[in-house]
């Protein structure tokens, strides 16, 4: 029983950490963006403040049962994926004590699909509101997903082929053994995945889903208060998940939390930097973008991996 208690504690810790890291990264981004724009900007805790405020709204509305369920779906998906992802390197001591969660019971393809679960809930909730902007946002998001999924999957296929496994722990272990991170042993795949991550994080120029100007923030346009807050939480956890996944797959994972933070932050800055200097794409341009060079790189990566 002690083991289970520890595991539950570990799971809670993981969730809290993921949430905190995701939120903080968001705050840092806002701060950095402000500095780039020659502003002072909010504190890096601004997102936490926003969240608390959203949760302390006195009234909340929903447009139907799916509108009520949507945020739950998102956070459920986020927490579930988090449970199945190795936050730290399996060889590290911290991992075995605190963060193993359920990582031995899932694999890469499962994670890929599980990550969609939340988006599906979001899409359903957005659809239920009846706001045309929400639906448009959802269709944009789905379309863009078809776009970036291709280079991403190509990269993952290369990875799985190269290491002959679909288990993330194994991939990390092999990278550890060979001493070469995937991003160096197969740089093309890494690049493809990196490009895909631009779409995944939905920073400019790929912020076509939210598109505050023309879509009134898109899918979430009818959500406020606690619903929006829960969605924000889920989104933050997801940001952490994606970063951790990238670190695990391409950078050999992390042995300790600081290492993890450094690596994830470095990765996180890529879409952020890219966003600072880019205006927004139209949807079809975004899709075409992903089907262009990133896909070519991905194919190259697979070929190299097979070689």
């Amino acid at each position: 029983m002690e083991g289970i208690g520890l595991k539950i504690l570990g799971a809670l810790l993981t969730t809290i950490m993921a949430f905190a890291v995701g939120m903080t990264y968001g705050g840092i981004t806002r701060k950095l963006t402000a500095r780039v724009q020659n502003r002072v900007g909010p504190t890096i805790w601004q997102n936490f403040i926003d969240l608390v405020k959203l949760q302390s709204k006195k009234t909340n509305i929903y447009h139907g049962v799916m509108g009520h369920f949507a945020p739950m779906w998102i956070i459920t998906a986020a927490m579930t994926v988090l449970m199945f992802i190795p936050v730290l390197h399996p060889n590290s001591t911290w991992y075995s004590t605190w963060f193993p969660n359920l990582t031995f019971h899932g694999d890469l393809i499962f994670l890929l699909y599980m990550m969609v679960f939340g988006s599906l809930g979001m899409a359903l909730g957005a659809g239920q509101t009846g706001n045309p902007n929400s639906a448009i946002g959802v269709t944009r998001g789905l379309s863009q997903m078809v776009g970036f999924e291709i280079p991403f999957v190509l990269a993952l296929v290369a990875l799985m082929v190269q290491y002959k496994t679909t288990s993330i722990q194994d991939i990390m272990a092999i990278q550890d053994q060979s001493g070469v991170w995937m991003m160096f042993s197969n740089p093309f795949s890494f690049l493809a995945a990196l490009f895909a991550s631009l779409g995944m994080f939905r920073y400019s120029p790929f912020d076509i889903v939210g598109a505050p100007a023309e879509l009134a923030s898109g899918p979430v346009s009818e959500f406020g208060g606690k619903y929006l807050g829960v969605m924000m939480t889920g989104g933050s956890i997801f940001a952490f998940i994606k970063l951790t996944l990238y670190v695990d797959l391409f950078m050999g994972g992390a042995y300790s939390i600081p290492e993890l933070l450094i690596k994830t932050f470095a990765l996180y800055m890529v879409p952020v930097f890219y966003g600072w200097v880019s205006p927004r794409y139209r949807t079809e341009q975004a899709i075409r973008y992903f089907w262009g060079w990133p896909t070519a790189l991905g194919i190259l990566g697979v070929i190299i991996a097979v070689w």
Binding site: R30, R39, V40, G41, P42, Q46, A216, S217, G224
Partner: peptide
């Protein structure tokens, strides 16, 4: 924004 003020779309 340094005061926590930001635009909302809806």
């Amino acid at each position: 924004e340094r005061l926590g003020i930001r635009g909302a779309a809806t």
